[in-house]
Simulated scan of single mutants.
Amino acid sequence: MASSTIIVMGVSGSGKTTVAEGLARRLDVPLAEADDFHPPANVAKMSAGTPLTDEDRAPWLDALGAWLAERDLAGGGGVMTCSALKRRYRDRLRAASPDVFFVHLTGDFDLIERRMRERKGHFMKAGLLRSQFADLEPLQPDEHGVAIDIGPAPDELVERAAEAVQRA
């Protein structure tokens, strides 16, 4: 599975970056942070506390899909962070990378909100968390992936994610 692409998904503050970094190191594959693919207009909206629309997300999802497709073509695999909140977003990413594996980090709203309020220097505001939870469509049985509760320590989350990827 190390040669496949993996998306670590979930709402903002769920630990996507931490788990994705650990997973990419463990699998020795490149890491892409989906936030880095947002056009400046999207970052400005989120920084102002304005949720993105599906129209705002379309070019962003296409750029993410292009990265995934490049990794598939190269055959080396890769790990990407991406909220991937809605099924149609994941479908769009799967259109670019049909075998992508999703690691969905799940957790309690209060825990994630507290984590978001404690972190510094991130453009995503804690106030947008409710809109993310409202938009979240969990992985369905026909989607290639696993849901992992974020309660354990980060090292344990990386271990659980790696085990799920290896089983896949």
Rank of each mutant, 00 (worst) to 15 (best):
A69C: 05
T53A: 08
L61Y: 05
A66W: 07
L64H: 05
S47Y: 02
W60T: 13
G75W: 08
A63T: 13
D62E: 15
A66M: 02
A84F: 09
K86R: 15
M46T: 07
G77S: 05
C82R: 05
A63F: 04
L85C: 04
R90K: 13
D72Q: 08
D54H: 12
S83H: 14
D62Y: 03
D72G: 06
W67Y: 12
P59D: 05
Y89T: 07
P51Q: 05
W67K: 11
A74G: 14
A69Q: 15
C82F: 02
L73H: 11
D56L: 11
R90G: 04
E55G: 03
P59W: 04
G65S: 12
P51V: 04
M80E: 03
Y89P: 09
L85W: 14
K86Q: 08
K45G: 06
A74W: 00
V79N: 07
T81H: 02
L52S: 13
W60I: 09
E70N: 09
T81V: 05
V79W: 01
G75H: 14
E70F: 00
R57N: 11
T53C: 04
G76H: 15
D72R: 10
G78P: 03
L68R: 14
A66F: 01
R88D: 10
G75T: 10
W60A: 03
C82H: 01
M80P: 01
R71T: 05
K86L: 00
T53N: 05
L61H: 07
E70L: 00
R88W: 07
A74F: 00
D56K: 02
A63G: 04
Y89F: 14
P51D: 09
A63Q: 12
Y89V: 07
R87A: 01
A58F: 07
G75L: 07
V79H: 01
A58N: 02
R57S: 14
A48H: 15
G76N: 12
D54V: 12
S47M: 02
A44H: 07
A84E: 10
R57K: 12
A69V: 06
D62K: 14
W60F: 06
R88G: 01
M46F: 11
